[in-house]
Design a protein around this nucleic acid. Sequence first.
DNA 1: TGTTAGCACTCAAATCGGTAGAGTGCTAAC
DNA 2: GTTAGCACTCTACCGATTTGAGTGCTAACA
Lengths: 351, 351
Amino acid sequence: MDTDKLDSRKMAILNAIIRNYLETGEPVGSRTISKFTDLSLSSATIRNEMADLEELGYLVQPHTSAGRIPSDKGYRLYVDKMMEEKVEEVNNMKEVLDQKADRIENLLKKVAKLLAVNTNYASMITTPKYRSRKLKFIQLTNVDDTHLLAIIFLEGNIPKNKVIDADHRYEESVLLKLNIVLNSLLQDLDLEEINMSIIQKIKEQAGEDSALIGRVLDAIGEAIREEDNIEVYTSGATNILNYPELSSDDGAKRLLYTLEDKQELAELVDDKLTSESGERTGTKGDIQVYIGNETPIDSMKNCSVVTATYEIEEGVYGKVGIIGPKRMDYDKVVGTLKTLMTQLDEIFKKK
Amino acid sequence: MDTDKLDSRKMAILNAIIRNYLETGEPVGSRTISKFTDLSLSSATIRNEMADLEELGYLVQPHTSAGRIPSDKGYRLYVDKMMEEKVEEVNNMKEVLDQKADRIENLLKKVAKLLAVNTNYASMITTPKYRSRKLKFIQLTNVDDTHLLAIIFLEGNIPKNKVIDADHRYEESVLLKLNIVLNSLLQDLDLEEINMSIIQKIKEQAGEDSALIGRVLDAIGEAIREEDNIEVYTSGATNILNYPELSSDDGAKRLLYTLEDKQELAELVDDKLTSESGERTGTKGDIQVYIGNETPIDSMKNCSVVTATYEIEEGVYGKVGIIGPKRMDYDKVVGTLKTLMTQLDEIFKKK
DNA sequence: TGTTAGCACTCAAATCGGTAGAGTGCTAAC
DNA sequence: GTTAGCACTCTACCGATTTGAGTGCTAACA
């Protein structure tokens, strides 16, 4: 595909067409543009240019004798151009987010909701992904006669609780001993590093209480695996019903299903994809824009997805995204995401 | 409204009409019934009876010269009749639920999904509601130089973690002392019972570390309030798009929004409602059925909602519900919910 | 050579009329 | 009390026609 530069007039016309289409959602005709822009060109001239633009692949005609609408390629150009310009307009998201959201989970849900409400599109956000979670420390405590509580503290200051069945009540001194054994041998290890040799060693040192050790290790494994699981939160799914071009046929059904099911959404954050997208989208900064077929998810072929990567600490990142119609207000969405990123950054740093 | 008993023939006809409508979703005419039942009556006779039934309020005609469809009152009669009959057909839900679902949260989500998949309607489930949560014990632990972990154990074996900012590292012996003070004074208290006098006492005993106490108490308050919050999980919301009578107009939009927002759903479990419903729905056992206008939620006026109450332990209960079109398969839904209840019961008992 | 006016042409969407079919209500006969 | 028959009603559907927005092309103009 030829990457020929468009002359500035073509550029202006394309711009005007896209802008207009973003607003109305209707195919836009030559006459509209002739009046809409200050180029003071007649509709006939515009028509010629439009024909050119169509030939170059930036515009599409839904059918003969309808106006033009931007193709994916047209959107792409528009978005790329737009991304180069400064986007700034800090709004007061921070206020909402700042109130102590203790659990990261709640914070993320709040972010998703905020985005959906602000943009009127659907939004999603994933929990941050650690390479592989390590154990920071573990502590066993008596709960009652038949239960112990294992507090499992993972790298990244994540506490996890696991209640463990016990056949009898353990003396405090025994628990103390076990705590010391477990911590001295397991500290800073991840799942791969906890092997049979280490397990054996622990059991030896635990002596008569080695029966318990198995259950404790299970709990640790569970905790780490639980935390490794990337969760996806969505919000504003119903917003997409406001866009007729998405809610026709059963497109809406499939899209809503995807958003509810969430499984497929994980693909959007797949490492492979992220790296690829760097080249493909040619974006600047953290923001990626997938237009139509560029998204890997089938039910979103008629949508655009704008994602951003947030970093919670060195090397630990998650993704947040907005899903809307192709004619979404990219300008606003990108702006919103950018300010969100800086504000999240501040929040995480402060912690 | 006259609660006149219907003679058995009218009853049979009404039954046949409803059954047929449940299947097809189309208004049903006299001719259909004449053949459908084994009453061997001509369509004309049926017509007469239908006219009577309409006059009594059990049937409705969408427009002249269309067949009849059941009114809310008609459904009500049908459902009440049905509930008296035995419903039994245990399927294998238990298998799915039995695998160790450690956190109740996950179990509930799984239940919701299971219901939605099994019935093809939307489902919801709430977290169980405790009267008022009491503190069982609390324990402070060092995390690193600037953070403490408070493990807050609530009545009902619910562990909660709160990370607390600290201005310096506390000696183990200090923490031990604080733990003892906190537990001796706060054990078995709920939020109301923790008053200024007690707080004062704690601070006195804590001496120079009283600055920390405020933050610890905040954490406790948060933990209890968090747990008091009833959460609602939903599943299968998109299923409702399969029923044209619900997805017409913007009814689907509003309904889906309700399901996503969840706030309004809490009304369904409101104490007030639950007690009222006992009389209103006249159901048997644990199952409540709300038909059309009987539901308190506006966006569900065209739906039916079937709810059941599960009990996790003495006095601690939650609600699970199924939302579908009025012409839902009540028989199956009620059956499914009933077996689910018994199976949940077993799971909770075993724990 | 680029721009514009004019005109014929195309196509989706809205409008209108007519028909078919399902179903009812009523009456008269059994 | 039941049934057959018939006139009537109303929706859904089909097809033809119209409307209007928009295009492409050509010819004239600066």
